[in-house]
Design a protein around this nucleic acid. Structure first.
Lengths: 297, 297
DNA sequence: ATCATCGCATTAGACTTGCTAATAGTGCTA
DNA sequence: TAGCACTATTAGCAAGTCTAATGCGATGAT
């Protein structure tokens, strides 16, 4: 039972002729005759009264004709919706990023991207690191941006940049005026740390341990913003990626000091589902992310 | 684009598996795979995400799936309506009859028919003779019943019976008490006649002329009932088919007398569209009409 | 990390379907 | 009643569709 046959039937009824209906569907009169005989056989119904000229649909035939028109219209609508959806999705990039990258960095990339590709649509969602991975795995995001990206069977990683880590303290803190601070000077310092299950916490702990430095962890948070607030009330110092405190550094609301730990960096990377073909728009977006941006040396 | 493929697609989406979808449609997994690849190619859309197990419909795929379900449901409804209509029509006989037969005769046939076939439906319409022919030609009636039926290219005739014609007069008329009347006795009589374009009028005129009888036509009508009313006010006498005056004869409201005109009869017949196959119910109905009925010798 | 397993894609060949062209049959009209 | 216009039928051919066998990739357990 195919839709072309139904369309043919509707045309034959509408045009009151096999010949004209066949012509309207670019097939021979014979094909039309056979197709509709088969249709009638499958439905076990006499749809057309051929004993009168011009031919006429029977009562059942008229009812079926109306139903067919509705059906064909519905199918065309579905097809059109599909085409519309394709256009929309092709021009869309869904980005999942961790808070600290999304808030500070993405806006700088998005502006030139949007002006370069005005027809494109970027959906940016800021999530916890674990949720970023999940979003990419579940195909809710085309790309994910996060720190300490790890490739797995299902995910590929494109390294984006290394963010140097710096000491962040309240402007009134004793280490605030220093041009640089050695790791050993943090010994016994009150420290606002990341949650223990985050990769950045493990990296910082490892670096401090290498220099035999022990700090006094007074608070633990899962994101940069809250840590900065804690430092703002002088609850302790912390070690954070420099780009995340650029604003506060410029406004002198927080003191930022280089640390003698050259190996301590936060790697930022892009993750994507393995084996996913890149749509053009997603490819351009990734290119944009890999360009250096003014103000981020 | 055929409906089986759409159903297959819906099943694959529903069961989240090509193999199970194929099984549900009694085809091989290979056929399912090929059919849906072709479907995607025709629609130029990625409906399924095969890179994850179990497979999942894409966003577009889900939308199309819903549309397909609606479509398939609509088609099944149309098919069901068709089957229902067939059942209903198969049990229906549409009868068009002239007044004089329909009113007096049909009810006697319909009662035994209805009790023999309780599931059948009889639609009786009483019309002018010309309209009866028209109704059968236009497929508005399955059978037509009328007098002086004439076969044409489009119509076949089944003779039903011959109705003897009798003299009908007001009970007070001078010929009312007679046991029989000879044609010659009608010479110069006031006469209530049928319209000139009716076959029965021509038959009566011909019979009278054969016996060199001339009557004085005082009124002309196109149906028996009106003629009987005219006789009822003693406007004149008339010659009518005996069955049409059975009631009045019994009730003595009109006087009915045999005429010495054995050749003067009104033939009643059934007409049908030539080449129309008989549905069982129509065949049974015609059989019923051909049976003699009590009270109609 | 590696391998076994499950499930989809692909291929080739048999089969079925659907089409065209030619011809026969039928309703309509002058 | 003859001719015309249209549909049904038939045979042969091209194309599509199916199955069985095999290849390939994802998933999960050891």
């Amino acid at each position: 039972m195919n839709l072309e046959t139904l369309k043919l039937y509707c045309d034959v009824v509408r045009l009151r002729s096999f010949s004209r209906g066949a012509a309207a569907n670019s097939v021979s009169q014979s094909a039309a005759s056979q197709a509709i005989q088969q249709l009638e056989a499958e439905l076990d119904a006499a749809l057309l009264d051929r004993s009168r000229r011009p031919l006429l649909a029977t009562e059942q035939g008229r009812a079926f004709d109306e139903a067919c028109r509705a059906l064909l219209q519905g199918f065309e609508k579905a097809r059109a919706d599909l085409a519309a959806a394709r256009e929309r999705v092709e021009g869309t990039v869904r980005v999942a990023a961790i808070y600290s990258v999304g808030l500070h960095d993405m806006s700088r990339h998005m502006q030139p991207f949007m002006s370069a590709y005005p027809q494109a649509r970027v959906l940016l969602e800021c999530l916890h690191p674990h949720k970023v991975v999940e979003a990419v795995l579940n195909d809710e995001a085309d790309v994910g941006i996060l720190s300490y990206p790890a490739p797995t069977r299902a995910l590929t990683v494109l390294p984006l940049r290394m963010e140097p880590m710096v000491l962040v303290a309240h402007p009134a803190h004793r280490l605030a005026r220093r041009r640089s601070v050695a790791p050993a000077e943090l010994q016994g310092e009150k420290f606002v740390a990341f949650d223990r299950d985050l990769a950045i916490r493990k990296a910082i702990d490892r670096a401090l341990k290498q220099h035999d430095v022990k700090v006094e962890v007074v608070m633990e948070f899962d994101n940069v913003e809250t840590i900065k607030q804690a430092i703002g009330i002088n609850a302790g110092v912390s070690i954070l990626p420099r780009p995340t405190v650029l604003n506060e550094s410029g406004m002198r609301t927080l003191a930022v000091t280089p640390l003698g730990l050259p190996g301590l960096v936060r790697p930022i990377g892009i993750i994507r589902r393995r084996g996913r073909r890149l749509t053009p728009v997603v490819a351009r977006f990734i290119e944009q992310l890999q360009k250096p941006v003014d103000g981020t040396p």
